[in-house]
Nucleic acid binder design. Structure first.
Length: 1050
RNA sequence: UCUACGGAAGCUUAACUGGUCUAAGCAUUCGUCUGAUAAGCGAAAGACAGUUGGUUCGAGUCCAACCCGUAGGACCA
C-alpha cells in the first residue's frame, strides 16, 4: 500500500535512503546506458582542484550542471558525465610550500625538484574524499570513477599534442613581456592575484633633472620609482602636448606648460614648443652604471604621455614598464635590466648591488641630490599592488622572457565563433566575454615553476627548436647517465613532469637539443579537457569527433569567464576551428544574507555539509535555483531556504499524503481502465489542462536554459492550482461517496498530476521526486522504471485554454465574494441567499458553467447573472488606452476624460451599436466598444466588489432557515475539531451528545442528517447529562453549548 | 577611466513586444477557512520606481547624462 507519513521523516534521512537505493541499483549508470548512443548530449565538467575544500558556491554550479543533465536524460539523450580534477599549478605549489616550510622559490631546487613534485602529486587529492562525499551527497550525478586527471601521462600527452599542433602552426613564440611579479617567490602574478593586493602606500615622488647633451638645459622628469632611473634609456613626451622652456632656480628647464604649477619659486618662460619638436634630442645618462649597446638617451614620442600629473616628460625604463617596453620596440631602444628576479640590483650597479630595489630608493635620491640632479622630493600616497601572499612586499614590474600563444591571430575567429554560443545570461557572452575577446592579448603560456605540464619544446644552441607531441616522439630522445646514452624508450618510468623530461635530450644533425625549462599555464590544462579527457588523438579518435565535441552544455561560475571559458574557447578555436561549447549557464557569486561576500575571515561562510545535514540537499538545490536566477548574485539566507522548503516540499508531500491516505482506504491502485478525459469532471479536465500547460512552459524554459522560470512554474502549479484549488475543491470526492466513476476519475487525475510533478521536479530535487514517484509507482506498477530518473519526460496532452479561462473567471468571482463576506462580517459558514454577478458577455457562459463550483466555494444558495440592461446597475466606462492611444494620438487625454464621463445612455448605446459618436471641441469623434471598458456598480445598497470588468454583489439578508443552517455548520466544525484533537481516524464512527440553547438545538434537529453525515455520527442526541468520551464547552455565536463525542467500536 | 549587472514596500523578488491606482512572498495588525497541509483566504498599512533630462498621446520599461552598489578590465611614468 502507499507509504504513509513520509512528511514526518526528516528530509536528510529520506535522502540518505534514496542515495542508498541509487547506489545499490546503479541508477545513475542505468540512466546513461538506457539512452541510445546515437543521441548524445555532451557535457563537460570543469575540473576543480581537490586540494581545497568544497564550498556552497560549488553546490550551485553543480546543481545547475546536474539538473540540465538529468533533464536531458529524461528527454531521451545519452548524457555521459565524466568527472575531472585539476591537479597542476601554483595553488598546489603554494599549499606544498606551506606544508614543507619552503619560503622562497630558490629553496626548491635545493630541496629537490623530484621530491618537491612528489609532494605536490601527493597533495592534490588532499580533499578528494570530501569532494566525492559532497558530490554524492548533493545528488550530483557524475562518473567519479573514470574521472580525468590532468597529471596523468595520458592527459599530458594530449596536451602536448595540442601544443605541438599549435607550435607547428607557428602560433607559439618566445618574447619579452613586462609582468608583475612577486620578488619573493620570483613568480609572475596573474592579474587576478594582482588585484588582490592593491592598497594605499607612501612612495617617494621625485622630480629629476636630465641634462641635455652639450647644453646647459634640463628636462624635468617625475617618477615614483627612483630605482628605475638606473635603467633609464629614453624620455617620452606627447607629440601634441605644449612644452615650455623656463628659467627657474637659475636653470633652464623644460616641462609641460600645463604643469608649470609643480615648479618651486618664480619662473620665466623663454620658449614654447610642441612635444613633436623635442623628438630626437639627446641627453646625458643620469646614473651611468650600465652601458648600452644601442642608440639611447634621446627623446621619444609616446601617446601615453599625459599632463595629469608629473611634469609631462616620462622616463622610460623598458624592462620595468609595459608602456616603456612597447616604446622601446618602436624606437629600437636597448633594455637595461640590472635587477635580478628577486628584485635586487645586480653587480653592475656597484653602489647598490644586492639591495632590494625599493630599499635603494632613499640612497638613490641622496646620490641625485649630491649631483645636483634632484629638483625636488615629495611623498605621495597612492594605491600600489603588493603581493597578496606577502603583504609587505611590493610587486615589481619586470621584463621576463616568456612563451606566448599568438591568440591575437585567431581573435577575429574567436569573436565570430562566440556569436553562435548561447549564453545564459546573454550579457556575459556579449559583454564580459565578448569584450575580452575583442581586446585579446597573446596568451602568456609559460611559467617558471615546477609542478605543471612541461612545455614540450626542445632547443639547440643555435636557437633551432621543435616541439614534441607524443610519448612516441619523446622516445626518440635519450637520457645521459654516467656518460652513457640511454634511449628514453628504455627508461623505467616515463613521467611527463619535471625533472624527468628535463633529462631528455635529442640529437639531430649532430646538434643537441635540450628542453626549454618552462612549464605551461595550468589553464591550458583545463582548456584542453575536451580532447585530453579522452586521450585524443591517441585513443577514442572517432568517438571524440563524433560524440564528444563540442559540448552541448557547460556551466560554471562567472569567475571562469577569463579562465576556463576562455581557454576552452581559445584552444577549440585554434585546434578545431570550432566552439568548445554550444550552451552555457554562468552562475554568479553567492553572498551572505546581507549581500556581503562570503569569506572565512568574516565567518559568514556556509558549510554545504551542515546545510545538507540540517535541511537536505534538495532544499539547498531548490532554493539556489528558485530564489533568484543563478546568474544574479544570490543572497543566501537560511530563513528563505526554510520557507521554500516548507512551502513547496511541504505542499507536495502533503498532496501526496492526502492521495495516499484515501487511495489506501479505497484500495485505488490504478488498475482500472483509464477514464477518458471527456468523461471526467470539469475540474479534472481543468487541472489536466493546467498540467499540460505547465509541461509546455517547463519544456520551453528548460530548452532555453532558463531554469529558474521552469522551477517557479512547477512550484506555482503545485501550490496554487493543484493543492489549493484542485485538491481542496475535490476533497469530498475522495472521502465521501463509494467508489464510482466520479471518484475514480478524481483519483486518476490527482495521480497523474503528482506523477508528472515528480518527473518535472526530478532534475531539480532528485531525492524527493524519487521518493514520491516510487511510492506511487511501486503500488500501481504503471511504469516499469525503478526510478523516476529513468523515466521518460511526460508527454504533453491537450490544453483547453477556454476551460482554463472559465476557471479563472470562477476563481475571480469567488475571491470577490469572499472579500465581500469579510467586509460585512459574514463568515463563510453562514449560508447566504443570493450571489449576483455582472460579467462581460463573453464570460457569461463560463459563470453559468461554473455555477456549482462558485456557489459551493462561497456557500451561497443561488447565483444570478444580472443583465446589463438591469436597472440595478450603474455603469461607468473606463478608457482602454491600448486601443485609443494609437487611434487618437495627441488628443488621447481629452478623449479619455470624455470617456470616463460617459452617461448611462451613452454607454448603453455603445454596448448596443458598438459605436458612439460625440462632439469634442468641434470635432466629431467616434469610438467603438473596444475602446472602452465598462464597469458596473450596484446602486441598490447591496455590497459590491469589482475587478477587471467583473462585479459581484451579495444579498446579505438572512432568513431563519439560513441562520439555522449556519449554526449547523458551526456545530459540525466544532465536532470535527474535537475529532481531530481526540486523534480519531477519519473513518471512525462516533456518538455525539450535546446540550445548548433552544435555538441551537432546533437548528441541530433540522439539520441532523447533514450533521451526522459530515461527522460520521451514528448517534446524535440532546442531553443535559454528559459523561464519557470527550467533552468540551463551546460558544457558537451567542449560543453556549456542550459537546461530547465518543468513538463507537465496531 | 572603461565594460557589464543592479538600484522599486522594512526585506526578497516579479512584470511578454511601452498602455495609465505596479504585483507577489516574507514580516506587522486584524479577520477568516479547514476532516490533507508548520498551509490557504481576506482586510489594513506600507514604494514620490536612484537623480535629472529626452523620445512618446502615454515610460519602471526606450534614449542620454549623472549618483550609489557589485563584479570585471585598463592604467598607476
Amino acid at each position: 500500500m502507499y507509504k504513509q507519513g513520509i512528511d514526518k521523516i526528516g528530509y536528510p534521512e529520506l535522502e540518505k535512503n534514496i542515495l542508498k537505493f541509487w547506489k545499490e541499483n546503479s541508477v545513475f549508470e542505468k540512466s546513461v546506458e538506457s539512452r541510445p548512443k546515437e543521441k548524445p548530449f555532451t557535457f563537460y565538467e570543469g575540473p576543480p582542484t581537490a586540494n581545497g575544500k568544497p564550498g556552497i558556491h560549488h553546490v550551485i554550479s553543480r546543481t545547475l550542471k546536474d539538473l540540465i543533465c538529468r533533464y536531458k536524460t529524461m528527454k531521451g539523450f545519452r548524457v555521459e558525465r565524466k568527472a575531472g580534477w585539476d591537479t597542476h599549478g601554483l595553488p598546489v605549489e603554494i599549499e606544498v610550500e606551506k606544508a614543507l616550510g619552503i619560503k622562497s622559490k630558490s629553496e626548491i631546487p635545493q630541496y629537490g625538484v623530484e621530491k618537491y613534485n612528489k609532494a605536490c602529486r601527493d597533495s592534490v587529492f588532499k580533499y578528494l574524499d570530501l569532494w566525492n562525499e559532497m558530490t554524492e551527497r548533493m545528488g550530483y550525478w557524475i562518473d567519479l570513477d573514470s574521472a580525468y586527471v590532468t597529471l596523468t601521462n595520458d592527459y599530458i600527452e594530449s596536451v602536448w599534442w595540442a601544443l605541438k599542433t599549435l607550435f607547428d602552426k607557428g602560433l607559439i613564440y618566445k618574447d619579452y613581456k613586462i609582468v608583475p611579479q612577486d620578488p619573493k617567490s620570483e613568480t609572475v602574478l596573474s592579474s587576478h592575484e594582482l588585484a588582490l593586493g592593491y592598497r594605499e602606500t607612501k612612495d617617494p615622488s621625485v622630480y629629476v633633472l636630465f641634462k641635455i647633451a652639450n647644453k646647459d638645459e634640463y628636462f624635468l622628469v617625475w617618477t615614483t620609482t627612483p630605482w628605475t632611473l638606473i635603467s633609464n634609456v629614453a624620455l617620452a613626451v606627447g607629440a601634441d602636448v605644449n612644452y615650455v622652456k623656463v628659467i627657474n632656480k637659475e636653470k633652464k628647464i623644460i616641462l609641460a606648460k600645463d604643469l608649470l604649477s609643480v615648479l618651486d619659486e618664480e619662473y620665466k618662460i623663454i620658449e614654447e614648443m610642441k612635444g613633436s619638436e623635442l623628438e630626437g634630442i639627446d641627453y646625458e645618462q643620469l646614473l651611468p652604471y650600465v652601458k648600452t649597446n644601442k642608440k639611447s638617451f634621446f627623446v621619444c614620442l609616446g601617446d601615453f604621455v599625459s599632463t595629469e600629473d608629473g611634469s609631462g616628460i616620462v622616463h622610460i625604463a623598458p624592462a620595468f614598464g609595459a608602456d616603456d617596453y612597447e616604446l622601446s620596440k618602436k624606437y629600437d631602444l636597448p633594455m637595461l635590466q640590472p635587477v635580478d628576479r628577486g628584485g635586487k640590483f645586480t653587480d653592475e650597479v656597484i653602489d647598490f648591488k644586492g639591495q632590494f630595489v625599493k630599499d635603494a630608493d632613499k640612497e638613490i635620491i641622496i646620490k641625485l641630490k649630491k649631483e645636483d640632479r634632484l629638483y625636488k622630493k615629495e611623498t605621495i600616497v597612492h594605491t600600489y599592488p603588493f603581493c597578496w601572499r606577502h603583504p609587505d612586499v611590493p610587486v615589481i614590474y619586470y621584463a621576463r622572457e616568456s612563451w606566448f600563444i599568438k591568440t591575437t591571430s585567431v581573435a577575429q575567429k574567436m569573436v565570430e565563433l562566440n556569436k553562435s554560443i548561447k549564453w545564459q545570461p546573454p550579457e556575459v557572452g556579449t559583454g564580459r566575454f565578448g569584450n575580452w575577446l575583442e581586446e585579446n592579448k597573446d596568451w602568456a603560456l609559460s611559467r617558471d615553476r615546477f609542478w605543471a605540464t612541461p612545455l614540450p619544446i626542445w632547443i639547440n644552441d643555435d636557437w633551432e627548436m621543435f616541439a614534441v607531441g607524443s610519448i612516441e616522439e619523446l622516445k626518440q630522445g635519450f637520457i645521459e647517465e654516467n656518460g652513457k646514452r640511454i634511449p628514453v624508450g628504455e627508461a623505467e618510468n616515463i613521467d611527463l613532469h619535471k625533472p624527468f623530461v628535463d633529462k631528455v635530450l635529442f640529437e639531430k644533425d649532430g646538434k643537441i637539443y635540450k628542453r626549454t625549462p618552462e612549464l605551461i599555464d595550468v589553464w591550458f590544462d583545463s582548456g584542453s579537457m575536451p580532447f585530453a579527457q579522452y586521450h585524443y588523438p591517441f585513443e577514442n579518435k572517432e568517438w571524440f569527433e563524433k560524440n564528444a565535441f563540442p559540448a552541448d552544455f557547460i556551466s560554471e561560475g562567472i569567475d571562469q569567464t577569463r579562465g576556463w571559458f576562455y581557454t576552452l574557447h581559445a584552444i577549440a578555436s585554434m585546434l578545431f576551428d570550432n566552439v568548445a561549447f554550444k550552451n552555457i549557464i554562468v552562475n554568479e557569486l553567492i553572498l551572505d544574507k546581507k549581500g556581503l561576500k562570503m569569506s572565512k575571515a568574516k565567518g559568514n561562510t556556509v558549510d554545504p555539509f551542515v546545510l545538507f545535514e540540517k535541511y537536505g540537499a534538495d532544499a539547498a538545490r531548490w532554493y539556489l535555483v528558485v530564489n533568484s536566477p543563478p546568474w544574479r548574485p544570490t543572497l543566501f539566507d537560511e530563513d528563505g531556504l526554510v520557507e521554500v522548503q516548507r512551502k513547496f516540499f511541504g505542499t507536495l508531500l502533503n498532496t501526496y499524503s492526502f492521495f495516499a491516505l484515501y487511495a489506501g482506504i479505497d484500495g485505488f491502485k490504478y488498475e482500472e481502465e483509464q477514464i477518458a478525459l471527456e468523461k471526467r469532471e470539469e475540474i479534472d479536465r481543468w487541472i489536466i489542462s493546467k498540467l499540460n500547460s505547465l509541461i509546455a512552459e517547463y519544456e520551453s524554459m528548460m530548452d532555453d536554459y532558463n531554469v529558474t522560470k521552469a522551477a517557479r512554474a512547477v512550484s506555482e502549479f503545485t501550490i496554487d492550482y493543484l493543492s489549493n484549488w484542485y485538491v481542496r475543491r475535490c476533497r469530498r470526492r475522495f472521502w465521501k461517496s463509494e467508489m464510482n466513476e466520479n471518484k475514480l476519475s478524481a483519483y486518476q487525475t490527482l495521480y497523474e498530476c503528482i506523477d508528472t510533478i515528480c518527473k518535472l521536479t526530478a532534475p531539480f530535487t532528485p531525492f524527493i521526486a524519487e521518493e514520491v514517484y516510487q511510492n506511487l509507482n511501486t503500488v500501481t506498477k504503471k511504469e516499469s522504471f525503478i526510478s523516476v530518473h529513468l523515466a521518460d519526460f511526460p508527454v504533453k496532452g491537450k490544453i483547453d485554454r477556454e476551460l482554463e479561462l472559465k476557471m479563472d473567471t470562477a476563481q475571480n468571482i469567488v475571491y470577490l465574494a469572499r472579500a465581500l463576506r469579510a467586509k460585512s462580517n459574514l463568515k463563510v459558514r453562514q449560508p447566504l441567499k443570493k450571489l449576483m454577478v455582472v460579467v462581460s458577455e463573453d464570460k457569461k457562459d463560463a459563470v453559468l458553467n461554473m455555477k456549482d463550483v462558485i456557489l459551493e466555494e462561497v456557500n451561497i444558495k443561488s447565483l444570478e447573472i444580472l443583465e446589463n440592461e438591469s436597472s440595478l446597475l450603474n455603469k461607468t466606462a473606463k478608457p482602454n488606452f491600448k486601443n485609443i492611444g494609437p487611434k487618437f494620438g495627441k488628443i488621447v487625454k481629452l478623449i479619455a476624460d470624455r470617456i470616463s464621463r460617459l452617461s448611462i445612455e451613452e454607454i448603453s448605446e455603445i454596448e448596443k451599436e458598438n459605436n458612439l459618436t460625440f462632439n469634442l471641441n468641434g470635432d466629431e469623434i467616434s469610438i467603438s466598444h473596444d475602446d472602452v471598458e465598462i464597469i458596473s456598480k450596484e446602486v441598490t445598497g447591496l455590497l459590491v466588489e469589482s475587478e477587471g470588468g467583473t462585479t459581484v454583489a451579495i444579498d446579505t439578508e438572512l432568513s431563519d432557515e439560513l441562520i439555522a443552517e449556519g449554526l449547523a455548520r458551526e456545530f459540525v466544525n466544532r465536532i470535527q475539531n474535537m475529532r481531530k484533537d481526540a486523534g480519531y481516524e477519519v473513518t471512525d464512527k462516533i456518538k455525539v451528545v450535546y446540550s445548548g440553547t433552544n435555538k441551537l438545538a432546533d437548528a441541530i434537529k433540522i439539520f441532523s442528517n447533514y450533521i451526522s453525515a459530515e461527522t460520521l455520527a451514528e448517534q446524535l442526541e440532546y442531553s443535559e447529562r454528559l459523561n464519557g468520551g470527550v467533552v468540551r464547552d463551546w460558544k457558537i455565536g451567542e449560543h453556549n453549548c456542550k459537546i461530547q463525542i465518543e468513538k463507537i467500536s465496531t
